[in-house]
Structures are given as structure tokens and as C-alpha cells.
């Protein structure tokens, strides 16, 4: 029983982080039909913001808030620098500009900070543990789960109830039609990037909390995770991204638990085999998003 509780907490904590990562990627993809390859760098930006504020004596929550704001800022900057100038012209160009923006941010961190790991301030509460039904778990895991619930609720409310959310959903379904009905395109796209940055910023606090430090290449893993999760869940579906995130965490954690040692080193091969099987079964991902028009 203890082990089961432990397992469930582990999966939910990892899955929550994965789901938020995936959500941040899919929100932009849903509208633009373009993957933002500079997405992982938003997590890096939040990490370095925390590092730079270390020692300022500010309360951790303030530092965390500034880190999230920086992540939002760079999310919107991605739109202005990499997407807006070229998005109407060619998909290939946007692919390249988003990669370029990612490389520029990484190299900026390399040049101006350090290629070596830099430590980030973490609140004491992150390293305290709690016992639930005999299972000892870091409080950070429960906080991750709580943050996921809060963020998902907030996000659902925003998308269903607010004008901005309704406009974004309209834009995701049929962008041209939405524009004709008076939805301002640039505002919608920038908002999507801002929300993407918010999600990346929040998830970075918990993701980096596991590591305790930040390196220039830190964004690769979250980008990969988000990408795979959205592919499993359905590239155009918001619930799909969340489901994909949790499912990926479930697959990874289960394999970590059940694979014998000799096979554990090939875990990623098993994970991706599962992903392929899921895609063979449901080529559009588990949850099919709104039938969408052409890329705009």
C-alpha cells in the first residue's frame, strides 16, 4: 500500500510537471500550427533569473514571481523576434528563426554567465518531507501537484469563460474566420506566447527545484518532454496535452519500476516504442482537437 501511494505521488508530481510543459507548447501550436522550439529556453530564463537574484535578500516568493515574469517576457519576445516577422511568409523560416532564438538565448547564457552549472535559491519548504500513509515524499512533489491543479483550473477558466480565451479558441479552430469576425490576430498570438511563458515559468520552479541548479542546455529535456506529450495527446488538443503529459510520466515511472536492471538502461527505447504503438493506434493522438483549417 505504501508503495502504491508512493508510486501515485511520484507519477502525479512528474506528470503534473510534464502536463504543464506540454500545455505551454500546445497553446502556441494550437493557434499558429507551429512548434516553438525556443520553448525550453523559457525554463532556462526563469532559472537564470533565480540565479541572478540569489543573494539579493528578497523573499523567495518574490524571486519566483520575478522569474515567472521574465519567462512571460521572453515568451512574448519569442513572438516578436522569431515568429511575427516571418510567420506569414514561410513555415521553414519560422522553424529556423525559433531554433535561432533558442540558440541565441543559450549562447547568451554561455557567454554572459557561464557554461558551468549555477545554483539557484530554493525555499526550505522544497527540501522538507512529509509522510502520507507511510510513504515519505518531499513536500515539493505535493506542491507540484497542487500547482498543476491550480494552473489547470485557471487555464480552463480562462479558455472557457474569458473573452480572451474564447477568442483564442476561435483562432485555434479557424484563424481566418476569427480574424474576419474582428478577433485581433497579433493580440491573440502574443497572449498565447505570454500564457506559454507563464506555464513554463511556473513549471520551471518545480523542475529546477529537483535539480537545484541551472545550465545553458537545461531547456532541451522539457522541450522534448513537452513535444512527445503533445504528440501522444494530440497536437491540437489542450486536454490531450495534459493527458499526454501524465501518460508519459506514467510510462516512464512504470518502466523505471518494472524493468529489470539489464533492460533499464534501454528505458527510453521502451518509452518510445509505447509512443509509436499509441500513434499506430491513434495517429492523431489520443484526443482529437477541433478540426482545424489551414495554418495561418
Amino acid at each position: 500500500m505504501t508503495e502504491l501511494i508512493q508510486f501515485v505521488i511520484d507519477v502525479l508530481a512528474l506528470g503534473g510537471a510534464y502536463a504543464l510543459m506540454a500545455l505551454g507548447l500546445v497553446i502556441v501550436y494550437g493557434i499558429l500550427k507551429l512548434v516553438n522550439f525556443a520553448y525550453g529556453e523559457l525554463i532556462m530564463v526563469a532559472g537564470y533569473t533565480l540565479f541572478l537574484m540569489d543573494g539579493t535578500g528578497l523573499p523567495w516568493l518574490v524571486m519566483a514571481a520575478v522569474a515567472v515574469l521574465m519567462s512571460i517576457f521572453f515568451g512574448v519576445a519569442t513572438d516578436y523576434v522569431a515568429f511575427r516577422p516571418v510567420r506569414a511568409k514561410s513555415v521553414t523560416a519560422v522553424l529556423i528563426t525559433s531554433f535561432a532564438f533558442s540558440t541565441i538565448l543559450q549562447n547568451a547564457a554561455l557567454l554572459f554567465i557561464s557554461p558551468r552549472a549555477r545554483n539557484i535559491p530554493l525555499p526550505d519548504v522544497f527540501s522538507t518531507t512529509v509522510t502520507i500513509g507511510g510513504a515519505v515524499t518531499p513536500l515539493r512533489n505535493l506542491l507540484t501537484i497542487a500547482a498543476t491543479i491550480v494552473m489547470l483550473t485557471l487555464f480552463t477558466w480562462l479558455m472557457r469563460r474569458s473573452i480572451l480565451g474564447i477568442a483564442m479558441r476561435a483562432a485555434a479552430t479557424n484563424f481566418t474566420m476569427a480574424r474576419m469576425l474582428g478577433v485581433p490576430a497579433n493580440l491573440i498570438i502574443s497572449s498565447a506566447f505570454a500564457i506559454s511563458g507563464l506555464l513554463a515559468g511556473v513549471v520551471s520552479l518545480f523542475w529546477l527545484g529537483r535539480i537545484g541548479s541551472v545550465v545553458p542546455g537545461i531547456g532541451l529535456e522539457p522541450l522534448l518532454v513537452a513535444f512527445i506529450a503533445t504528440v501522444i495527446g494530440g497536437m491540437r488538443s489542450v486536454p490531450g496535452a495534459v493527458l499526454g503529459g501524465f501518460l508519459l510520466a506514467l510510462i516512464d515511472t512504470s518502466l523505471n519500476h518494472i524493468l529489470p536492471q539489464d533492460l533499464l538502461k534501454f528505458r527510453d527505447a521502451f518509452t518510445f516504442s509505447f509512443v509509436i504503438l499509441i500513434l499506430l493506434w491513434k495517429p492523431d493522438g489520443l484526443i482529437k482537437g477541433p478540426a482545424s483549417g489551414q495554418r495561418t
Binding site: 511520484d10 512528474l14 529537483r210 516512464d252 519500476h257 536492471q261 527510453d268
Partner: peptide, 21 residues
């Protein structure tokens, strides 16, 4: 016990379960 970890996972929970077991 000998256990395996994958670089970049940032998740050591399964290994800890095995150690505790």
C-alpha cells in the same frame, strides 16, 4: 543492490522505492 539511472531524468523516485524495498 545495483541500480540504473538515465542522465537527464531528474527523477530518482523508482530507484528510491527499490532501495527502500
Amino acid at each position: 543492490l545495483e541500480d540504473t539511472y538515465t542522465n537527464g531524468d531528474n527523477d530518482f523516485s523508482a530507484q528510491i522505492s527499490r532501495l527502500q524495498a
